[in-house]
Simulated scan of single mutants.
Amino acid sequence: MNSGFTQATKGLIPTLATNFGIQVCCWGVAAALQTEKPWDKHSVTLDTRHPRQLLASATTAAWAIYLGSFLFERTLRHGDKRFNKVKRKPGLFLVYWLVQGAWVALTALPVYLTNVIPAESHPSLDLQDFLGLALWAGGFIFEVVANYQKRQWRQQVGPDYKRSFISHGLWSISRHPNYFGECVLWAGSYLLSSSSFSSAVQDPAVISRWWTRLALFSPLFVTFLITRVSGIPLLEKENDRRLKDVVAYWKYKKETSMFVPRPVMRS
């Protein structure tokens, strides 16, 4: 009997269920131990039947491995202040894990979709795919280099980091180059993954248009979240408080782009 679901919907249901299942399981352990130090939270559907699926999955896996290990190490060393007030409240702690699951699901949705679309519905790789791959690579490298530079700076300044700030390397052209790289790589991931959407939607049994429209929110959602909600606003507020008496910081903040890299002439 026909369930009324498209092939894409049928393929996404177990992926998204697994994604949220992981979040709930991690919440259970974290709530019991009253800690926010999880192991892995990323769920990616891999399907190598078409080169586009392989590329989309491989880039997402590379991102997940890098960022997961980076955040895991940082959390072990410093914890995460965002969880200090909620990790002893299991119900509220669960909300944090579910929101995290929603973030992962929506962010990686274009990759999930391109993997559940049958190989025969994929067009050959074209210019859009290579542009997306180049954009992803540029953003990924930008993020990795920015994080490396900040880690080296923090090791050099030691305990004095609370009265200091990084302003060299990529941090001289953007106050948050790591976040800029993160947003760019997801825009590239969308370009790469979405090459298969236009042909797949021609068959309503394969995928519905509303799935592909929702996928467009992936890079928009990441950018909005980082620039308006939980990324840059929180760090800017913390830095302003921590460095309120440091004249050089306010000069740096005035001269340096908050997000999009832009070389400036220092006075």
Rank of each mutant, 00 (worst) to 15 (best):
Q34V: 01
Q53D: 05
Q23G: 01
Q34C: 04
L46D: 03
A58T: 09
L16C: 07
D40C: 15
S43K: 06
A62M: 10
Q23M: 08
T48V: 14
H42W: 15
A64Y: 06
T48G: 13
R52V: 13
G21E: 00
H50C: 01
P51R: 07
A17L: 04
V29N: 02
Q23S: 06
T60I: 09
K41A: 15
A17C: 02
L46K: 06
L54H: 08
T45Q: 06
T18V: 04
A56M: 14
E36F: 11
A58K: 03
S57R: 04
S43C: 11
W39F: 15
L33C: 09
H42R: 14
C26R: 01
A31N: 00
K41N: 12
W39T: 14
H42F: 15
H42D: 09
T59Q: 02
L54N: 10
D40A: 15
A61Y: 10
L54P: 05
V29S: 03
H50I: 04
D47L: 11
T59L: 07
Q53V: 03
A61R: 06
A56N: 11
C25V: 15
G28H: 09
Q23K: 08
T45Y: 09
Q53H: 08
A58G: 02
A17N: 00
C25Y: 12
T48H: 12
A56Y: 10
V44M: 04
T59M: 10
G28C: 13
T59D: 04
C26D: 02
K41C: 10
A61K: 07
T59K: 11
D40K: 14
G21A: 00
A31R: 06
V29D: 02
L54D: 07
Q23D: 04
H42S: 15
T35H: 01
W39L: 13
L54W: 14
W39V: 12
V44A: 03
W63L: 14
T45M: 13
T48F: 15
W63H: 15
T45S: 09
V44R: 05
V44K: 08
L55G: 06
G28K: 11
A31W: 01
Q34P: 02
T35D: 03
K41D: 03
T18I: 06
A56V: 08
D40G: 13
P51S: 01
R49C: 08
L55Q: 05
C26F: 00
V29I: 11
L16R: 07
Q23V: 02
S57G: 12
D40F: 15
A58D: 05
I22K: 01
T18D: 00
D40E: 09
V24R: 09
T35G: 02
T45A: 05
V44Y: 03
G21Q: 04
A62R: 05
Q53I: 13
L46Q: 02
G21H: 00
T18C: 08
E36H: 10
P38L: 13
A58P: 02
K37V: 14
L33Q: 11
D40P: 12
G21F: 03
W63M: 14
L16V: 08
P38V: 15
L33P: 00
K37I: 12
A32D: 10
A17K: 01
A62V: 09
T60R: 06
